[in-house]
Design a binder for these strands. Sequence first.
RNA 1: GUGUCUGUAGCUUAGUGGUAAAGCGCCGCUCUGUGGCAGCGGUAAUGUGGGUUCGAUUCCCAUCAGACACCCCA
Length: 427
Amino acid sequence: MNKEKKEEILKTPKGMHDILPEEGRWWDKVRKATEKVTEFYGFQKIETPILEQAVLFSRTVGEDTDIVQKEMYTVKTKSGDTLALRPEGTASICRAYLEHSLSKAAPMQKFWYEGPMFRYENPQAGRLRQFHQIGLEVLGGVADPMYDAQVIIAMYRLLEDLRIKNITLRINSIGCKVCRPAYKRQLQAYYKNNLKKLCGDCNKRYKDNPLRLLDCKNEKCQPYKEDAPNFFDKLCSSCSTHLKSVLEYMDELGVPYILDNQLVRGLDYYSKTVFEFYAEGENSWALGGGGRYDYLMEMLGGKATPAVGGAFGVERIVETMKSQGVSLPERTPKKVFIVHVGDLAKKKALKIIEELRHAGISVTEALSKDSLKAQLKAADKEGAAIALILGQKEIFEGNIIIRDLKNSLQESVPTERMVEEIKKRLK
RNA sequence: GUGUCUGUAGCUUAGUGGUAAAGCGCCGCUCUGUGGCAGCGGUAAUGUGGGUUCGAUUCCCAUCAGACACCCCA
């Protein structure tokens, strides 16, 4: 194969990465912590396909959002369906919930998921084309702010368990279909006369998504933000009490938060509570976020169903753990290493490995090396405690040498007593 | 989609318009059935394509990839 061809083939697609064993240890840590937290708070694991009907996302995430318009990977199947690599998890969970009529099983259910998500963007810090999310969802029941609080607390505890420091929680309410449109109009009315003085992005926002006007970082636009109508004052009474009780729960649980009226989430399906987690002073991007989405099921043609959830970016969590100096547990070396001398012993060694497996003793080897020296060196590097040495002489006598690698003492024992002797020494 | 910077062994980094260095790693030898230490040796690289030049890893252009930022988001 010529060189250029090879260069092309041996490359992950842009913005997508292999997770090599060393990196994978961080992921394992996150996974284990997630399993513990979700189990404790009663979330059940759910897995959905990575590909879904593209319309599932355009309906829910929003036809006009960047995620759908510019960032979705779509695939035409041979039968003419348009599928999409999922850009997020919530829509799939809701689809499954409706498809299998899960609402009939219990009034309220909690699910969690993990897996790769895909967005076609330019990669940069904390942003990839294939990234992984861990998400929690509470579906059904009533739109009780307690559930908002539970999702938040579970996510908060996960970050704590992972020893992430300076966790900042930002909360806001983006209202409901009663107060949000009214607020949007007021905002537009307020900005209307100043459009010429605003940046180009804000002019677009004015039309498509007025809420984001408050999000602009352009200097030109800052002066106008101060006097803009505040959503807190314009929330309807239902939204306003909902937000208040979520905050009360946070106070009750001792979770610090910042009430951030500039927090606006980019997905259409949110209503009322929205929140994001940051590792303050570490990165500009959020570790995760979420909110309430009481209208999502209806968007999919189902019955109106209260729902709230949130998701973390696994890569972002791992990055933060690394930069904050979170430690990884020491690798636990295999205790027993088998060494052979000569071809006959090599064959016999394979059999001994099986014997040890039956006895529940895990063992490593470097049977590809032939010299005794090289094998012992490898044993040392593995950090093994015991080396089993098997050569012509031992096979002939029906023995095996058990060598203690710490103090270099060794003893030849009959093979029948091998397991027993190893167990004695490992204690 | 836009902008800025970067691309040298497996990893971390030197360096030069004229034979491309080192540390770590890996393999081996010193030590022919006994590891850790040490000494010695070996392994392996200028992302890709083009241009300028007698000669390019170095300069120029393109491209790809990466980093960072905008946009947006996990």
